[in-house]
């Protein structure tokens, strides 16, 4: 029997059972840096409460895409909507800089691989979390302190150290401060850019467990970028595989890992230890 299966369709088109609308929709996102095409007509859809994993090698465009989701950068073309009350049909890339900043502070949390990008290293940990609340307009000192404490606690940060500066903390603790800052305002969307890369495995397991617990208890929608397939497999419901700025495959996490359809994904999965 000869069967030309060709390459898989990225989305299966069938009537939907799922009634919920996507929280995040990106359409036709392209971005070039000089001659380098970092993103080529990328589409992404993320449903409420799910964890979307993005995998791909260095330079595949996964972190650039995450930065677009965090409105840190504007693409050359494409639309981005989040189903937030009153903003359902708004292309967020059309927002002015101040509006973007407020929307991000209020509705989007991010944890970077490098804590220097997310934290003021010489301010107290609780102060770092409170800063996020200040931007969103909270002014009462007691409320700031209580909310910062609550977010640090939910991130499983030891509260007797909440006044320590991130520069004095271990890598795993710094990630917990970033996480506390990211979830302090109960964001609709939590973006995670290699959150456990560089941590030793036992600390990595604890941070992943914290993330899983937050997702289960608060149903936070997450987008997780990692080059570590084990991390993605543990965490993600669905996976997008990126290469050279394109999404070459997407599917349920177990399907992408057990029955990869694209030659590049097969290579990636076979290379996993």
């Amino acid at each position: 029997m000869s069967l030309d299966l060709g390459l898989p369709a990225l989305e299966r088109a069938a009537p939907r059972l799922m009634r919920a609308e996507p929280l995040l929709t990106m359409r036709d996102i392209s971005k070039s840096f000089g001659n380098v095409r970092a993103l080529r007509q990328v589409d992404a859809t993320v449903y409420p409460g799910e964890v979307m994993g993005i995998v791909g090698e260095s330079g595949s465009g996964k972190s650039t895409l995450l930065r677009m989701m965090n409105l840190e950068d504007t693409p050359d073309g494409g639309d981005y909507t989040l189903r937030l009350p009153g903003r359902e049909n708004e292309n967020l890339f059309d927002l002015a800089r101040y509006e973007r900043r407020m929307l991000c502070a209020r509705h989007i949390g991010i944890v970077y691989q490098n804590p220097h990008l997310g934290l003021l290293m010489r301010h107290s940990s609780s102060g770092n979390v409170a800063e996020r609340l200040l931007i969103a307009g909270e002014r009462s000192f007691d409320v700031l302190r209580d909310k910062a404490r609550e977010a640090l606690d939910a991130s499983e940060f030891p509260l007797d150290r909440m006044d320590a500066r991130p520069i004095e903390l271990s890598g795993g603790m710094q990630q917990r401060v970033q996480l506390a800052k990211a979830i302090a305002l109960e964001p609709a969307l939590l973006l995670l850019d290699e959150p456990t890369t560089g941590l030793d495995v036992s600390v990595q397991a604890l941070v992943l467990d914290t993330l899983k617990r937050l997702q289960r208890d608060r149903q936070i929608t997450m987008v997780l970028v990692s080059h570590d397939l084990g991390v993605i497999r543990t965490m993600a419901d669905r996976v997008m595989v990126m290469r050279h700025g394109e999404v070459v495959e997407q599917g349920l996490a177990d399907q992408v890992f057990q029955d990869p359809q694209h030659p590049y994904t097969q290579q990636l999965v076979h290379a996993k230890l």
């Binding site: 069967l3 088109a13 069938a14 939907r16 059972l17 669905r238 599917g251 349920l252 057990q258 359809q261």
Partner: peptide, 30 residues
């Protein structure tokens, strides 16, 4: 649906209505 079928149908009578698991969207399978 850990494996993607290349042909055929798996009609399933779900509480939400009938669906072909062989062609259903990933979010529906989830």
């Amino acid at each position: 649906r850990s494996y993607l079928p290349v042909g055929g149908h798996v009609f399933y009578r779900s509480n939400h209505g009938e669906i072909d698991l062989a062609n259903a969207a990933d979010v529906d399978i989830a």
